[in-house]
Structures are given as structure tokens and as C-alpha cells.
Amino acid sequence: MRRKAGLVLLAFAVFCAAMSPLLRWYAFPRLAKIPPSQYQEAVLEAKNPTLIDYGTMKAKKVPKVTIVQTLKGNVEASEKIEKSADRDVVVWDALSYVQDSEGKMVSKIPERYIFDAHSQEPVHATGEMVDGDPVKRQGIEFKWPFLTEKRDYEYFDAQARVTRPIHYKGTQNFRGVDVYYFEQTIPWTKVPFPKTMPVKGITPESLAKTGTTRWYTTVRKFWVDPTTGAPVYGEEIQKNELRGGTLLGGRDKVTVFAGHVKMREDYIKHTVDLVKSQRVLVLLLTSYLPWGFLILGALLLALSLWLEARSRGPGAPAPAADNDPEPEPVNA
């Protein structure tokens, strides 16, 4: 009986010992992925920014500018691309909608971001765009890979349509979560006019005819949970200018927007709570279960060996096979 129990324990010990690396290095890379149906919104605000008045073509201080950013997973589009890409793909239709303190639209920039669900590497397919312009993204956007490393990443800037490094600047504690702080600076760069302008009659084409160009610079800051790769907080110090041409009435440049954009407080709390719940799932596969199985496997193996040793020790009952009655000598 003791030997039988020892063998069962040995089977469980090997099961647990095998589960540990299998979960960490086989299951985790295959199971950890962004769901293609994700829907997420974030609200960011710039307090007392400078904003252009297109009526007078003069910049003025306004109380607030609000940016509503929505990400919507397009399941049908991702399934279509998956057939040719032969990997798990996520298609995010995104919209950055900017409005002033009176609720008037300042700009709206739609995007389609296509990426590998596991690695967050961009996937190039028809439909990938920023504000209607086809793009071929390099690097990440919106989200870092699972198990983010302490290193610089390439990050795509949708306004300038360029990829530049986003630098790892250290580890910080943000509202109870240990996060990696990343910072990217996009120097003054000429950028296209948004396709949708806030004033009727003004189009990117009509602006281009005046010879006026739009320039943009930003310092982008992200606090990223390294386990899930999800930013828990973001800020941007952004400046937009119109330069040259006949539109500015002899002036060299006019500020379109200048402000410090920060995530709204209720969305910070919501994002931190969401990331905290998601990181437990990732930690289950990368840490809790592998270590738990390893320790349990070692304990079961020890117990199994102990039982085996006891079953063979002095005073132990003889093995079942030895218990068979000796054949009686046959007397003639």
C-alpha cells in the first residue's frame, strides 16, 4: 500500500515539476495576448493651454482642452488579416477627439493600428492608417509588450508619422504599482494638417495653397506596468505651430496649441485598477503557478522518496509478492 502511494506521489511530483517550465515558457507566450475585442477609452486634459482661434488666426489662452481617446478592437478585420498573416492579430480602430472648453471640436484624428497580439509588433496590412493616410508603422504604439524590459523602445508618433526611440528613464512607484518611466522627445517636425478642421471651409488643401505649414514638437511621458506592458499613466507636453505662408498676415508663426496634457484623475484610477487586475493574470502564468508547481513538485517528490524508503526499511511489511505462502514440502 505504501509503495503504491509512493508511486502516485511520484507521478504527481513529475506532473508538477513539468507544469512549472511548461506554463512559463510554453503556455505563457501563447496565452498572453491582447484580446481582439478590447474597447477602451481615456480622457486627457490640458489646463490653461494656448489654442488658436481660426476666426482671427490668433493664439489665446483657454481654460481647458480635452482629448478623448478611444480604442476599439475590430474583431472582423483582425480575423481577416489573421488568415493571411498566420498569427494572432489585433486591429485597433482609434480616435483622438479634441475639444475646447466650450465643447467645440478642435480636431479629430482616426487611426487604424494593426499589431501582433502577443508581441505588439506592428503588422502591415491594408487599412493601416493615420487620419486617412496609409502608414507603415515601426515600433510600438499605445502599449508595450508583456514583460516590458528596462530598455529603450521604438515608438510610433502618429502626428509626425515617424518612429523614434522612447527612452527608459528609471523605475518608479505610481499609486502602488512599480512602473517603468519612459520618455520620448519629438523635435520640431513638419506635420500634415488634420483632414478634419474645426472651421467649415478650411481644408488641408486650402491651407496648403497659402504656403502655410504646420509644425509640431512633443515630450511624451509614459508610466508603464512592466508585467502587462500597459501604461498606467501618460502625459504630453505638446506644441503645434503654423509657420510661413500668406495665411498668417506677415507673422512668422502662430501657435495652434501649446499645453501640458495629463490623464484625467478618474481615468488614472480606473486605469490603475484595470492594470492591477490584469497583472495578476500575467503573474499567475509567469510567477505564481510556475513557482507553486515547482515547490509542490519538490515536496511531493520528497514525500514519495520518504514513503519508498520507509517501505524498504527494517520492520517494514514485506512486499506483497513475498507474502505469498511458501509451498508446502511434499512428503512422500
Binding site: Y26, A27, R30, L31, K33, P35, P36, S37, Y39, E41, V43, T66, V68, T70, K72, G73, N74, V75, E76, S78, E79, D93, A94, L95, Y97, Q99, G103, M105, K108, P110
Partner: peptide, 21 residues
């Protein structure tokens, strides 16, 4: 477990927002 994976779900009926929630 890895072969089964997670179901893809459906595209959210929620719109891309043009108002501040």
C-alpha cells in the same frame, strides 16, 4: 489549454467617442 486559447469575442457596439464621458 494552449490549443483552446481564449475566444476572440465580438467587436464592441460602443462608438468611437466624440463627446467627453
Amino acid at each position: 489549454i494552449t490549443a483552446i486559447g481564449a475566444p476572440p469575442g465580438e467587436t464592441s457596439p460602443e462608438p468611437l467617442l466624440t463627446t467627453v464621458p
